[in-house]
Design a protein around this nucleic acid. Structure first.
Length: 274
DNA sequence: CCGGACGCCTGTCGGC
DNA sequence: TGCCGACAGGCGTCCG
């Protein structure tokens, strides 16, 4: 599910409720996520959550404060994960595998029906964790620009859509926003990454930025599972131009086409995207 | 190194 | 109505 905008929405949503709070009790209902929940998590009662941040599609929680560094939590929402904050003692929903009861009488609840998500404890710098270390630049950072992407595209025969979904190239661009950004940039998802002009790569960089920024402003996209921290859906779905669109292109009226690339659905306008 | 496929899970939806 | 296959926002791992 969650691509960068959904993780960013989650990060912003939970931060005011969890930052600075102490974890009073940890409830682990099911530790069988993509990897087993780190055993350290069970012993976190009494630890303070110093802050929340995001890197790629990972949500990071710094534990302890000041000189009392107590490690970090690395969360991933997988395909169907979401978080919410609700009063401690309120009933658990189905698939709410992890719950932290906090010192403000609120609980952070992690729900993940498909269990592709993750909750890992990390002793040192989470950015050096083996899952985070090899990641490419953030799409909204200055390092992600036309010079960078054009250079990385040199000699690559992979389709541009799978290429921009490769987290070693740029992080946070998932299946929905890859299709949307390519539509906005006028580039066919099947085009070889190395066969796109610098000017069009520059357009793609701006399209990725614009798409993600607009989606964040709408609280992300809800297809099925994703909810914001207050339980509301993300509202970017109505802004989608091609993804899951069985109708016609808004710009030219041509029927939107569907194809499968790398076992993932792609959507594009055969007239607007060359 | 690169590109492509697989598998991890549960839920939902369309077709017969 | 019921069953069955296809498909769903990710991504590490393996294979050629």
């Amino acid at each position: 599910m969650p691509e960068l905008p959904e993780v960013e929405t989650t990060c912003r949503g939970i931060a005011p409720h969890v930052s600075g709070q102490r974890i009073e009790r940890v409830i682990l209902r099911d530790t069988r996520l993509r990897w087993p929940v780190s055993p350290e998590v069970a012993g976190l009662a009494g630890t303070r959550i110093a802050g929340v941040s995001r890197r790629a599609k990972y949500l990071l929680m710094a534990l302890g404060h000041g000189k009392l560094e107590q490690g970090n939590l690395i969360w991933h929402l997988g395909m169907s994960g979401s978080m919410r904050v609700a009063p401690t003692g309120s009933p658990a929903a189905s698939h709410e595998h992890v719950e932290f009861e906090l010192s403000n009488d609120q609980s952070l609840k992690f729900r993940d029906p498909r269990r592709f998500g993750a909750l890992l404890y990390c002793d040192g710098d989470p950015l050096q964790h083996r899952l985070l270390q090899p990641l490419g630049p953030e799409p909204l950072a200055d390092e992600f620009n036309a010079d960078y992407l054009y250079r990385r595209c040199r000699g690559r025969s992979a389709a541009i859509k799978t290429f921009i979904m490769n987290s070693h190239i740029v992080v946070g661009v998932g299946n929905i926003y890859a299709s949307e950004a390519l539509y906005l940039a006028g580039i066919r998802p099947t085009r070889a990454a190395g066969r796109i002009s610098k000017a069009r790569i520059a357009r793609l960089v701006e399209a990725i930025r614009a798409t993600l920024t607009a989606a964040i402003a709408q609280g992300g996209t809800t297809l099925q599972d994703f909810t914001q921290v207050d339980g509301k859906p993300g509202y970017f779905r109505q802004a989608l131009q091609v993804y899951a669109n069985k109708g016609d292109c808004q710009a030219c009226g041509t029927a939107i086409r569907h194809l499968v690339q790398g076992q993932r659905s792609s959507y594009y306008c055969p007239a607007c995207q060359i």
